[in-house]
Write a protein that binds this DNA or RNA. Structure first.
Lengths: 187, 187
DNA sequence: CCTATCCTACCTAACACTTGGTAGGTTCGA
DNA sequence: TCGAACCTACCAAGTGTTAGGTAGGATAGG
């Protein structure tokens, strides 16, 4: 298959970057994981910056697809809103990993320009989706749905970060519970 | 002065780590900033891990002192609660930097054990302070003050992260405003 | 049908550079 | 004269990246 190695590189890079960030990526380890040599990665990606951008782009696309699939499964926006935190929970379940773009947000100063763009695009996808759902659910006034979407996105990213720093997924669950109790998320 | 270089190293390391993380620290650049040679840092800190732990410890102590000073200035807990987000805002104002321990929470997998401990201790300090203030303010039931404190801490860290990824401090302000509007923070 | 050519996907081997860390000095004030 | 504070000079490991090569399949010309 023409793309099997390329896909394997993308997948391995995503896994690593969700644990060690963009700066934690290196061609030798990546190549080892895929079963090829470091130099061969250049056949698929012209530079580390390009690889990083490709990984972030794919991550965003996958997330967008997952969110849309959630909508397809249930047209009840409140149900979708309840399920949303699970998308971030999955990363923690996966060996205490975190959202790729949260990590990259921290690394922002060191990021090549195209990667920065992708990080922002990821946030946009999430906020747009949340905003739509909030509107549909009617839990906030129309003009408040986007600010609220942003607040929810930021708060959940923060919860994931804190839970990661304690390797404690039950802390994540508790934080989401507190967000609901406080009224940030619908109870 | 016996400690002037040591203090200068700590200060420079903190500045760098708030922009590039623990992995972004390196002895040569650090030494340049302080005006000494890289090897001389080893006179003050036996290893990078020790330096990292010392920086995080000092960061926590400084934060604890600042929070206590806030309490001294005003005994009104609601007022303190309103001021709390400013401590995170300052980092953003300082060249789009972020909380040292949020960055290190992302880098968690790569952190030496003593540094991990300090990262957790920093969160503990913040949560304990917030919890005390929330109790004093009586904005939540007593048994909810600690969970709520955690939720506030996590949410604010997330807001800082998102604002950083856009180099947009007004986004941070807007997020804090949304937290208040949603009821996570007292209005 | 055979052969020359080309392309894809990979390889080995090296490059220049950065990293944390060490060995062994020198300087200088108490 | 002793030790704190700093130095020069180095090392081994790891980094992104490049040069140049090879195996094997597709393709086209005779």
């Amino acid at each position: 298959m023409s793309s099997s190695s390329k896909e394997a590189i993308l997948a391995a890079a995503r896994r690593t970057a969700q644990a060690r960030g963009y700066n934690g990526l290196n061609f030798r380890d990546l190549a080892d994981e895929v079963g090829i040599k470091a130099a061969s990665i250049y056949h698929h990606f012209p530079s580390k910056a390009d690889l990083g951008a490709a990984v972030a782009k794919r991550y965003r696309e996958d997330t967008a697809a997952a969110l849309d699939a959630m909508l397809d499964e249930s047209s009840d926006p409140v149900r979708c809103l309840r399920q949303y935190p699970d998308t971030f929970r999955k990363a923690l379940q996966n060996d205490n990993r975190m959202c790729l773009c949260s990590f990259m947000a921290a690394e922002y100063d060191d990021l090549p320009e195209p990667v920065k763009k992708e990080v922002q695009a990821f946030a946009d996808v999430n906020v747009a989706w949340l905003s739509r759902i909030l509107s549909a659910a009617g839990v906030v006034r129309a003009e408040e749905s986007e600010p609220r979407a942003r607040a929810i996105f930021a708060a959940i990213a923060g919860a994931q970060l804190l839970a990661r720093s304690r390797s404690d997924i039950s802390l994540y669950d508790a934080l989401i519970g507190s967000y609901r109790a406080a009224g940030l998320l619908p109870a």
